[in-house]
Each structure stands twice: as structure tokens, then as C-alpha cells.
Design a protein around this nucleic acid. Structure first.
Length: 865
RNA sequence: GCGGGCGUGGCGGAAUUGGUAGACGCAAGGGACUUAAAAUCCCUCGGCCGCAAGGUCAUGCCGGUUCGAUCCCGGCCGCCCGCACCA
């Protein structure tokens, strides 16, 4: 009897799989088998992989191996989301070039993933920072530019004046740059945008077709797009002069409730609305109000708590339905310039914010919507607005209409008088893709004083990132790299400048799944025929943190590429199935002086947790997602060294449902180790010369037949669990199977044959989860070839349905006994057996049976009183 | 504030169309083997009553529908997530 040694077995089987080429994907255009594309969100090469990261890849791998065994042509590739800020931070902090840092991380992480035994087709590996990837991205950019989907417009950015760089929102902490600590200012820059809003409706409608996505993610996308229907209304200026002053005829507002127009009491503009800005330039009090709003605009918490504030701008507009009705125009801190038209009309009775504002500044409140069953004479609005539906009143020609009718009627009237129209707005904004950074895909554009914005000719792609850059000064090194920046204009030949912005890394991840289908094509981003055959991704696996942006951008990209004729994908949907997995969490430890401590820096002593180095007690903190910053990570290599890849794979799938977090515990790992050894011991103890696990089992009965039933039942349960992404249930079923096999004794031929079959099926059921152990078991019990090349086992339906069933018998809903009857036995016979059962008869003493419910093959319930 | 989700033993969780609540794992306790330990194996393991057979309560709380509710409906409490002054 030997112990199972993963350190020997795992490299051996990984070499055997490589030798047999089992992980290479077939060419789907040359195959008549069904395809299955399974993909995990590709990682950012941040350094090393820990056990937490491995959960996502293991889930994808289980699916890949299962589908492969089921006879699908499986595509299961891996790559690297290799551009991004951490590489530049490393460059600044440690003087290492972003490319070297990134490539080294990739090398390390690739090795880690390979040691995990993932069934990945490594010949398709891509890294987005390589010119042979971003070259195609630049070509795609130009294609979208040609089609008018790329535009340049001004946008506000967070500017760090010390680092001279643009900051992402999460890099602004309490109004200050996260690195420099300088106060961040808002700056307007010319920026590149993708016109994702052109696809707002299609992206919204497409959500309905994504029936294999979590409802939660679909809802989040829906809210993000935020479509709302209503009307755009022009309130003309009272003073003719104002039209000239502000360069427009009046104030345009967006509303979802044009039916409440007769309740209007004021207009409110965003503090940075064009008209507010114009007034701010001449009126110091307006300017100081704008300053106030800008200041509170920095911290979210303050915005939350900020009371409604406004300022009367002294401008007057006319009501669209009554030219003698004048309304004051205010500016208010709760109006967003980025939504709708940046202006609202306040109808205080029907909107809480408007009401708060009106009460504060003593503006009129006219109720116009009468709630159902309310009396118009007594209905009053005090501190609470009525936002529901009802009947319109105090509203002239709208009186008596319902809310819905009123909206239609008001819009019709607005159109009639030429002061408005039905309109739809979206919360979704265009996708800002400019980043004032070095380590990203260069935007293939040249700025010429004569010709303006000129695209780089396609044959000159890629526009390569220069390697000779320095990070010793703040700002974007590309801006200072004159040799790279200065080029001749492709159109007129005059001296011109390259665009120094690089693309948001979300662009890279918006089409990588297409590149995987034919990564060797140098001339085009991907082969349209091959991409058509593989797409869409059948199962995408990743974190919930990408529920909105990444998935929405990718959905936009596939539509844009489809419309540009690059891919034949009528639905435009890249991911047919999506699964969002939970994290691996681990306890956190902190020393007295606030240092985070790793799990191997502390130990338990007499019920206390102490730091090994100092012998001081440490405080045991919350469960947190494994992360480097909290030091609660368990490195994958160290884990594999101790317990093997299979243990890591099995652990992260055990116990918790895949969509929920799972807690890493040393005890749990010990349990996995014991289980692996038990499985191995079962196989190792199997007699040499026993029948092959694939041989037919002779007729058997008793315990042997029971074993066969159990095993075939397990085949069904595990298959169903994998199909349903319930890996924790699959793990439980395999545990039960192993327990049953262990209980089975008997040395006769039938017993040994039944055990051969059981162990063989066990190995195959285990193989998607613990592929190395499965191969070792399979080899030991005399299986032919590799488990990796076996088909998925079928169960014998006759074996999973027993001839007799055990039925619980309830009396008045309480279980009082159980009976064994033939499967499908007639109800009256079942009833008679149930009534005769001793325990049942006892509890029926003194009662009259009123009714007997027999649910065939499930339960009997006797109603008695 | 709006939207969504979740509450089951000491713990993670099963129970997939309303039909035996607590599968499986972890922890804990007891025992076997051993000079001892480790490893391994066996047994117990929701609460209460009971020597036991068995009874009884129990899936956050209150109520409803049903022969029967962890599951469906209404109300409440708690926790988590997303968006956040969206006109």
C-alpha cells in the first residue's frame, strides 16, 4: 500500500497530456462535432497566482473537461490582459520597464496555471501588450473611426497637478490624488470616445435574449443603460435679450412627467449648465455658488449629505402652454449636467426633491395628480410628494385624464405648439477610451495643423510603443518622447504629431475572445469563418465586478464589428452563457501596530493567535477576499508543493455554491488531503488482475447490485450537477460514492467485477475536478489509455430506478412510519399497506380516517380526526 | 432613497416541479490500533423529554393558502450587493 504523491503524479500526467495533445482545439470549420467555447475572464498579470484566483480557472476547466468528454470540440484558451497602470507604477517605484515587469509576471503566472493542470490550449496564448495583438486593435479602431463610431470631444477628467496625470475615479481619495496627495482638479481635455450610445437600444433589447446570464447582471446592465421615456420641452425666455445673451431661445428640459406641467413652479439648471456658466462669468454670486457645488462634488459622502441648495438666476421663462405664465429659473446642486439636458422643471407636488427645494425657497406647490380615492377638496401636499399615478386636476385641458393619458396628451400638445416633443434619454454615456498613459495601446492617429485629425494608414500599423521611455518625471512619457511623437502628416507631408493618448484596457478585453479563435492570423484580427464557427462563447466565467463595464463594452464591440462586416454574428451577443463566481476568502490578521500579517506568519498557541516572529498576540480580523494588500493569500505554488494541484482544485469547489464565496481554512485542506488518500487507497487496494474497469459486469445481486445502483446513480447526479454549475453538489455526490465503495466488501468474481466498474466510473467522474488523481487511479486499476481521452460515462437507466420504493407515511402531516412497496404500485394497494403499518396504526388509534392522499412513489398522507 | 438578493445545526451548506428537513464536508466528543504520538479505522453529533421504544419543538419573526410549506402569498425584522439627487 502506497501513499498518493501528487508531486510525482502531477508532472507525469501533465507531460502525458501534452504528449497526447489532448488540449489542442480542433478546427471547427473542418469538424462535424458540436463546438463548445468555454472561457474564463483572462487575468491581469499582476505577479503571482494565489489559491483565490484558481477558483475561476478551475470552474472553467471542469466545464471544459466535461464537455470534451461529452464529445464536443472544446475551445479553452488563455491569455493576458497585459496593459495597465500597475506596470507603470512598478516602473516608477522600482525602475523596471513596464514591458519587462509584465512579461516576467506572465512567465511566472503561466507556469502556475500550467501546474494547476488546466486543459488549456496554450498554443493560442495571447498578451494584449504585444504588437501582434494591438496592431489589430489599432486596425479595428480605424475601422470604427471610418464608420463614425469614434469621436473626439471634450470631457472632464480628474487631473493631478503634481503627478501631471489623469486619475481614474478610484484613484481620487477624499479629493486628493492617491499617490501625490495633491488636490485633484477637474480639467476639460479633448478625449476619444466610442459611441456606445448609438447601440443603447440594441444593447438593452439584447439583454432579454441572454437567458443563460444571471438575472442580477442583466438587471445591472439594464439600470446602467437607464432608458427613460418622456418629453423634451422648451421653456422660451421672457426677455428677448436673454435669447441673444445665451445663444438659445430658451431652456430645454427633459422630463418623464410632462403630465405634471401645470404643477410647474420653477426651472432648475445644473451648476455647470451653459446658461449658468454664462451668468457665472458676469455675476460673482453665481460664480461662488458654482464653486460651492464643485467643492461638494468631490466626496461622495458629502454629496449624499448635502442639503438641496439653489440660487435664483434672475432669468424668467414662459410656460409652454400659457404665454402669460412666467417661471423663475434657478440653478440647483441636485441637477446633473450629464443627464437629460442638464435642466429640469420643478413640479414640487409630484417629486420629492422638487418639493424639498420648493419648501426651502418658498416656491409655489400646486398638486396636479389626485391619488385614487382621494378627495380633490381635501387632498394636500405638505412634506411628502405624491409620485404615484392618479387623475389629473388643476391642469386645464388635462383635467380628468389618467397619468398615462396625460403624458400622451401633453406631448401631443407640445408638438402642436412647437415647444417640445416625445423623447427618450439614457443614463448610458459614450465610452471614454483616452488614457493619458504610456502602457496601453497607442491610438493610431496623427494630428496635423493643416489636415486636422488624420488616421495612420493601415499598412503602417502597428504604431509601436517606443521602448526607450523614462518614468523619472511626472506625466505621460509619450508626450516627452520627441523622436516618437514627431512625424510627417500622411496627407500633406507637413510636420505633425502623433496622438499620445493610449486606449483604455477595456478595449483590449472587448475582442480578445475573437482573437482566440485564430490567434495566428497576422493579416487580420481574426479569421471570420473560424470566428463564426466558434462564436458565441458558450460559457463565460468571471467575477461579478465585471458585471457592467467589461460585459457591456464587449457586447457593444461585437455589434460594432458585426456592422463593420468583420464578423458574422447576427445577435451581436458575444457570451451566450455567463457565470459569475464567488471569491475565496481568508481570515485576516493584524498586529498591534497595524501591520497586516500573512497566514504563515501567525500560529495558534493556547487558543491565542500570535505572531511567530514577535510572540505577540495578533487580532484576528474579518473574512476578506484573498488579496495581496491584506496579505491573506495562500500562494498557489506553495500550496501545490504541499498538497498538489488536485487538492487546490477540489478545495475551491467544495462546500460552497460556486456563485458564493468560499472560506479557505487549513482544516478544510486537511479534509481534502484525507479524501485524496482515501480515493487512492481504494484503487491501490484493488486486486491486480481484476477485470478491466470498462469490462461488462456479470449479473449480480445483493450488495454487488446495490453498489452498481449507487455508482450509476452517481453518474447521473454528477453529470446533472456539472451541467447546472453546482460543483459543490457534484463534490458531495462523489463523496457519497466513495463512501459506498468503501463500505462494499466481498471477494467473489461478481463483487470484484462490480468494484472494478465502480472504481473506473469513480475515476472518470473525478477527472474534471482532480484530473491527475483520476489518471493515477485509472492506471492502477488497469484502465486503458488516459482518462482524459475517455468519453463521459453513461449510466444504465435500469440501474437507477429500483423495483421497490420506500414511502414515508404521514398522519396529519407528521411522519409516522414508512412502507416498502413495488414501484408504481396501485394507490389502493399502497393505501392498504400504509394503514396496516404498525406505527401508523398506533397513531390512528381512536381517530377516524377521513382521507388518504397517495402521491405515487413519493409519499402517503392520512388525514384523520 | 431606488432596485435586487439572502436568512436552515457549533460552521460551510443539501433538499432543482409544494411531498421523509439537516445529504456531503468541517469542527467537536467517545472508542480501536499503538510503549506513545502521528496516520488510519469505528461510533455519536439540531433543541427538549425519555433507560429505551418513542414523543415533541424546530428552516429569522407573525399570519395565510394547502392533506402537506425551507419552497407559494401578505406583513415585519436582520444581513448582503448594485445604483445613487436620473428629472
Amino acid at each position: 500500500m502506497t501513499r498518493y504523491n501528487p508531486r510525482e503524479a502531477e508532472p507525469k500526467w501533465q507531460a502525458a497530456w501534452a504528449e497526447a495533445g489532448v488540449d489542442a482545439a480542433a478546427d471547427p470549420t473542418q469538424s462535424d462535432r458540436e463546438k463548445y467555447y468555454v472561457l474564463e475572464m483572462f487575468p491581469y498579470p499582476s505577479g503571482r497566482i494565489h489559491v483565490g484566483h484558481s477558483r475561476n480557472y478551475t470552474m472553467g476547466d471542469v466545464v471544459a473537461r466535461y464537455k470534451r468528454a461529452k464529445g464536443f470540440d472544446v475551445l479553452h484558451p488563455m491569455g493576458w490582459d497585459a496593459f495597465g497602470l500597475p506596470a507603470e507604477n512598478a516602473a516608477r517605484e522600482r525602475g523596471v520597464h513596464p514591458r519587462d515587469w509584465t512579461l516576467e509576471n506572465i512567465r511566472v503566472m503561466r507556469g502556475q496555471l500550467q501546474r494547476l493542470g488546466l486543459a488549456i490550449d496554450w498554443t493560442r496564448e495571447i498578451a494584449t501588450c504585444e504588437p501582434d495583438y494591438y496592431k489589430h486593435q489599432q486596425a479595428i479602431f480605424l475601422k470604427l473611426f471610418e464608420r463614425g463610431l469614434v469621436v473626439r470631444k471634450k470631457a472632464k477628467v480628474n487631473w493631478d497637478p503634481v503627478d501631471q496625470t489623469v486619475l481614474a475615479n478610484e484613484q481620487v481619495v477624499d479629493g486628493r490624488g492617491w499617490r501625490s496627495g495633491a488636490i485633484v482638479v477637474q480639467r476639460e481635455l479633448d478625449q476619444w470616445f466610442f459611441k456606445i450610445t448609438d447601440y443603447a437600444d440594441e444593447l438593452l433589447e439584447g439583454i432579454e435574449t441572454l437567458d443563460r446570464w444571471p438575472d442580477k447582471v442583466r438587471l445591472m446592465q439594464k439600470n446602467w443603460i437607464g432608458k427613460s421615456r418622456g418629453a423634451r420641452i422648451l421653456f422660451p425666455f421672457v426677455e428677448k435679450d436673454d435669447a441673444r445673451r445665451f445663444g438659445c431661445e430658451g431652456i430645454e428640459v427633459f422630463t418623464t412627467r410632462p403630465d405634471t406641467l401645470f404643477g410647474a413652479s420653477f426651472l432648475a439648471l445644473a451648476p455647470d449648465h451653459a446658461v449658468t456658466n454664462a451668468l457665472g462669468a458676469e455675476d460673482p454670486s453665481v460664480e461662488s455658488f458654482q464653486d460651492y457645488c464643485r467643492r461638494t462634488g468631490v466626496s461622495e459622502e458629502e454629496i449624499e449629505k448635502a442639503p438641496k441648495r439653489g440660487l435664483d438666476l434672475g432669468v424668467k421663462v414662459r410656460h409652454p402652454f400659457d404665454k402669460d405664465w412666467e417661471l423663475p429659473v434657478w440653478t440647483a446642486n441636485f441637477v446633473l449636467s450629464t443627464y437629460g439636458t442638464g435642466a429640469i422643471f420643478g413640479s414640487p407636488a409630484g417629486d420629492q426633491r422638487d418639493l424639498d427645494f420648493a419648501r426651502k425657497y418658498d416656491l409655489p406647490v400646486t398638486p396636479v395628480v389626485l391619488p385614487p380615492n382621494a378627495d380633490p377638496k381635501t387632498h394636500k401636499i405638505t412634506d411628502e410628494a405624491y409620485t404615484g399615478d392618479g387623475t389629473l386636476y388643476n391642469s386645464r385641458f388635462l383635467d380628468g385624464l389618467t397619468t398615462a393619458e396625460g403624458i400622451d396628451r401633453a406631448i401631443a400638445k407640445l408638438e402642436e405648439v412647437g415647444l417640445g416633443e416625445g423623447a427618450t434619454t439614457y443614463r448610458l454615456r459614450d465610452w471614454l477610451v483616452s488614457r493619458q498613459r504610456y502602457w496601453g495601446c497607442p491610438i493610431p492617429i496623427i494630428h496635423c495643423d493643416n489636415c486636422g485629425v488624420v488616421p495612420v494608414q493601415e499598412e503602417l500599423l502597428p504604431v509601436r510603443l517606443p521602448d526607450d521611455v523614462r518614468f523619472d518625471k511626472p506625466g505621460n512619457p509619450l508626450d516627452r518622447h520627441d523622436g516618437w511623437r514627431h512625424v510627417d502628416c500622411p496627407e500633406c507631408g507637413a510636420p505633425a504629431r502623433r496622438e499620445t493618448d493610449t486606449l483604455d484596457t477595456f478595449v483590449c478585453s472587448s475582442w480578445y475572445f475573437l482573437r482566440f479563435t485564430s490567434p495566428w492570423r497576422e493579416d487580420i484580427p481574426f479569421d471570420p469563418e473560424v470566428a463564426k464557427a466558434w462564436m458565441p462563447v458558450d460559457q463565460y466565467v468571471g467575477g461579478i465586478e465585471h458585471a457592467i463595464l467589461h460585459l457591456l463594452y464587449a457586447r457593444f464591440f461585437t455589434r460594432a464589428l458585426r456592422d463593420a462586416g468583420l464578423i458574422d454574428l447576427p445577435s451581436g451577443e458575444p457570451f451566450a452563457g455567463l457565470f459569475t463566481q464567488g471569491m475565496v476568502t481568508h481570515r485576516t490578521y493584524r498586529s498591534d501596530d497595524g501591520r497586516w500579517l500573512g497566514p504563515n506568519e501567525v500560529e495558534e498557541r493556547d487558543g491565542q493567535t500570535v505572531e511567530i516572529a514577535t510572540n505577540k498576540t495578533v487580532s484576528v480580523g474579518q473574512l476578506e477576499k484573498m488579496s495581496k494588500s491584506k496579505k491573506n493569500v495562500v500562494d498557489l505554488d506553495a500550496f501545490i508543493e504541499d498538497f498538489g494541484a488536485d487538492a487546490a482544485r477540489w478545495f475551491v469547489l467544495s462546500d460552497s455554491p460556486p456563485e458564493r464565496d468560499v472560506e479557505y481554512t487549513a482544516e478544510g485542506v486537511d479534509g481534502v488531503w484525507r479524501f485524496i488518500q482515501r480515493v487512492w487507497a481504494l484503487c491501490d487496494g484493488h486486486p491486480q488482475g481484476a477485470p478491466s474497469p470498462s469490462a461488462d459486469v456479470p449479473a449480480c445481486d445483493g450488495a454487488d447490485l446495490e453498489l452498481r445502483r449507487t455508482v450509476h446513480r452517481a453518474v447521473k447526479d454528477v453529470s446533472d450537477a456539472i451541467e447546472g454549475f453546482r460543483f459543490n453538489s457534484a463534490v458531495a455526490s462523489i463523496h457519497e460514492l466513495v463512501n459506498e465503495i468503501r463500505r462494499h466488501k466481498g471477494e467473489g468474481d461478481a463483487a470484484i467485477a462490480a468494484r472494478s466498474e465502480a472504481l473506473g466510473l469513480m475515476a472518470r467522474l473525478i477527472s474534471p475536478f482532480m484530473p491527475h488523481l483520476a489518471e493515477s487511479c485509472w492506471e492502477r486499476i488497469g484502465g486503458e489509455g488516459l482518462v482524459a481521452t475517455q468519453g463521459w460515462p453513461d449510466y444504465d437507466p435500469a440501474l437507477i430506478t429500483a423495483d421497490s420504493v420506500t414511502l414515508p407515511v404521514q398522519v396529519n402531516g407528521k411522519r409516522r412510519g414508512e412502507i416498502v412497496v413495488a414501484r408504481g404500485a396501485p394507490s389502493d394497494a399502497v393505501e392498504a399497506t400504509a394503514l396496516a403499518e404498525a406505527g401508523v396504526a398506533r397513531s390512528l388509534e381512536g381517530l377516524t380516517v377521513r382521507k388518504v392522499i397517495v402521491v405515487p412513489d413519493r409519499i402517503v398522507n392520512i388525514v384523520a380526526g
